[in-house]
């Protein structure tokens, strides 16, 4: 069970936070991460329209052969994305804890501009205790 990466995508599809915790994924530039986050945002919107049985949420879990992407959409439209190994069972509770940390340290920070990249030490600290990493 490895947690590779955490992303926070704002409601417009922009990547506002990205952090890697373990090696094993490709080394990408921040621009490439921005593109991937935008793609994921678009895919999320389309998947909710493809439902064969009526209204559906957007995509929640994407699985490859060895990795898994778990997406948690908040009521306000912010997406929390966790990239883990396929065996990881703990992604959803972890993402809820990340949301809690986000509410505590980012939303309550008077110096944080909404929808802009997150540069808050306290958030970094809370994520480190949650997911490890340096």
């Amino acid at each position: 069970m490895v947690t590779y990466s955490l992303w926070v995508i704002n409601k417009a599809g922009g990547l506002v936070y990205q952090r890697n915790f373990a090696d094993g994924l490709a080394q990408l530039s921040s621009n490439e991460y921005l593109v991937l986050a935008g793609t994921l945002h678009g895919i999320h919107a389309i998947t909710s329209r493809l439902s064969p049985t009526g209204t559906s949420s957007g995509v929640q879990v994407i699985e490859g052969e060895t990795l898994k992407i778990t997406i948690f959409l908040t009521l306000t439209g912010t997406k929390f994305v966790l990239v883990t190994s396929l065996a990881d069972q703990n992604s959803e509770p972890v993402l809820r804890k990340v949301y809690e940390a986000y509410a505590d340290t980012v939303m309550k920070n008077p110096f944080q501009t909404p929808e802009m990249p997150i540069r808050t030490d306290n958030f970094d600290l809370r994520i480190s205790t949650l997911l490890g990493g340096s």
Partner: peptide, 24 residues
């Protein structure tokens, strides 16, 4: 798009297998 996303993210020839939403 998902196939490209997974390939780009993993950096190797990894295949996309499936995805899940609340209803399918």
């Amino acid at each position: 798009s998902l196939r490209n996303l997974i390939k780009k993210l993993s950096g190797r020839d990894e295949q996309f297998v499936n995805y899940r939403t609340s209803t399918y």
